[in-house]
């Protein structure tokens, strides 16, 4: 009986439902469907990410100039750069600039964040004010810094020489390589502090006050509270902020280009400014692209270092800390 009914059922089923067409089967095929659903995203990535990156890579292997499409020359541009002292100076400058400026931003930014985390009058107003250097367009603040560092009209020189009489001549901030580098780093730190401070402040506010209360009851000192509670709990956001900050600093362009344009005699060029200088005003698109492409390994390296060095602790994956 049962077999008969099921037979009938089957017959009816086969009668009602025709064999699947190719299209239907294709759409039922899971890998294909997955691929299909990813297409828009892939399209976006290709158009907006892969294509420009690929074009940059391609340009770096041609002798293109502005006005001429250029021919494939393999690694010629890179080989030339290997022997180019100005390129190597820009590499060491960039690493130095990034390391020192990032360290400065984090020390001062963390300090500022902890100050702002206290209950102070006009808290919201103060926090908004702190963001100013970050909000002001960099070109504008660069021009302000350029005035501050001017050999003839510097406010710092004015105060030191004409008001306080500490020196008898104006300071030549940007005229020689090392003072110029330090001046640029100071400007970069000034601009970067708000980002670090506000990000870390957000992190600080997620730390439960009860932890500090418990520490207080245990008689922990201020330093111990900072070392054992604040720092470990701030680590995840610190890692993200550090990575972003390193990337921003490494690829900084506007500050340097507006204040020194890489001068005096190329000693303050960063890789980004040198790439622009060679590619656009210098019209050597291929060479400029090669410098820009040379930044990629450094950027990946810096990102990995920040991420693995700071961010990837066992407790972040839900395991016990060492």
């Amino acid at each position: 009986m049962s077999t008969t009914t099921s037979d009938v059922g089957l017959q009816q089923l086969t009668f009602v439902r025709k064999p699947d067409g190719l299209v239907t089967r294709l759409f039922d095929y899971k890998p294909f469907l997955v691929f299909l659903c990813m297409l828009p995203t892939i399209g976006l990535l290709v158009v907006f990410l892969t294509y420009p990156l690929g074009l940059g890579l391609w340009l770096s292997m041609t002798d293109a100039t502005i006005g001429q499409p250029g021919e494939f020359i393999g690694l010629d541009n890179f080989l030339y750069l290997l022997e180019d002292p100005i390129f190597w100076m820009s590499v060491t400058n960039t690493i130095f600039y990034t390391t020192v400026a990032t360290a400065g931003k984090f020390v001062l930014g963390l300090w500022l964040a902890m100050l702002l985390n206290h209950h102070i009058p006009f808290k919201a107003f103060l926090r908004a004010i702190v963001l100013l250097p970050w909000i002001v367009p960099t070109v504008l603040s660069s021009i302000a810094w350029w005035w501050i560092y001017s050999p003839q009209f510097s406010i710092i020189s004015y105060i030191v020489v004409d008001v306080l009489h500490l020196k008898d001549h104006y300071i030549n901030f940007l005229g020689t390589p090392w003072p110029a580098r330090w001046s640029l780093i100071a400007a970069n730190i000034w601009r970067g502090i708000p980002f670090v401070a506000i990000t870390l402040l957000a992190g600080l506010q997620t730390i439960s006050p009860s932890l500090y209360e418990a520490a207080l009851l245990d008689g922990a000192s201020g330093w111990q509270k900072f070392r054992r509670i604040t720092v470990p709990l701030l680590m995840p956001i610190l890692a993200v902020a550090l990575t972003l900050s390193v990337l921003f600093t490494f690829s900084d362009f506007q500050l340097v280009y507006a204040i020194t344009r890489g001068g005096p005699f190329n000693t303050t060029h960063l890789m980004a400014t040198l790439a622009f200088q060679r590619a656009i005003p210098g019209a050597q698109l291929g060479e400029g692209a090669a410098i820009a492409v040379s930044m990629i390994p450094f950027l990946i390296g810096a990102t990995l270092l920040c991420f693995f060095g700071v961010g990837r602790r066992k407790w972040q994956q839900g395991e016990a800390n060492d």
Partner: peptide, 21 residues
């Protein structure tokens, strides 16, 4: 020369001249 000329961009000398420096 006056110190700092290496830091001048195209307006550096204009400013210095006009200020009497």
């Amino acid at each position: 020369m006056i110190p700092g000329t290496l830091t001048w961009n195209d307006v550096g000398n204009n400013q210095a001249y006009q200020s009497g420096a």
